[in-house]
């Protein structure tokens, strides 16, 4: 009888302590904490940053196989979710994750969407904007960053979903080496990776070999 009473109390308490759990994610770029630069090392004047996570684990090689021009849509197809798309997430006043000025905070991201310890990625593109789409529907953001020719992906070990009610500020100067999945380490900064465009000479060579192969057949 006593244990039934106790179980009842636990059930009641379980209901009572189901807190409104949410977290905050922030990102700022400046000379102190670093920022993204073009592949040439020049400052970015267009494009923006996405911060998110994968609903299912992915290998770095899967990300590295993508091309900047279609990368965001491909990332979405791989299960990527920008934290801004989480149901209930709110952009704090002053939020700006579009180049040239990157500084902003996303609040009230449900911890159910971003559990503590989830690996976060900071991804930058050199063109286009983030398309907000429909909250809670990542597919509706897939046209983001249209026209990008360069991009970078960073996943520092410290970029993880924080505990309930907490904040995680993701800074680029924390990342180095293999934590830069796409792009190159440039001191506190990260240079975007350019997708190599085939040069006129290379196109001529490819064409020449193509003709040779056809003739042999």
């Amino acid at each position: 009888m006593k244990s039934i009473f106790k179980l009842g109390l636990i059930a009641l308490a379980s209901f009572a302590i189901s807190a409104n759990a949410a977290v905050t994610i922030a990102h700022v770029e400046n000379v102190t904490v670093g920022g993204f630069l073009k592949s040439t090392g020049a400052a970015l004047s267009a494009g923006g940053v996405s911060i998110g996570y994968f609903a299912t684990p992915v290998f770095d090689s899967q990300i590295q196989a993508l091309s900047a021009s279609t990368a965001f849509a491909d990332l979405i197809a791989l299960g990527y979710r920008d934290v801004r798309n989480a149901s209930g997430a709110t952009l704090a006043v002053g939020h700006d994750w579009a180049f040239p000025t990157i500084s902003g905070t996303v609040q009230n991201i449900p911890i159910g969407s971003l559990p503590q310890g989830t690996q976060l990625y900071v991804i930058a593109f050199d063109a286009g904007n983030y398309v907000a789409g429909t909250s809670g529907s990542p597919a509706t953001t897939s046209t983001s960053f249209a026209g990008a020719t360069e991009w970078a992906v960073v996943k520092d070990a410290g970029y993880t979903g924080p505990a309930d009610s907490n904040t995680r500020s993701l800074l680029l100067n924390a990342a180095s080496g293999s934590e830069i999945v796409v792009g190159t380490d440039n001191g506190v900064n990260v240079n975007l990776a350019a997708v190599p465009e085939p040069s006129r000479v290379m196109l001529t060579v490819f064409g020449f070999f193509g003709v040779l192969i056809r003739r042999r057949r």
Partner: peptide, 22 residues
Amino acid sequence: PYADGINTFSTDGQLTTVGTYF
């Protein structure tokens, strides 16, 4: 600097984050 953060919350019983500071 820039890394550690502070959150403030609503007082309506929902604990919605209403402010973030660095």
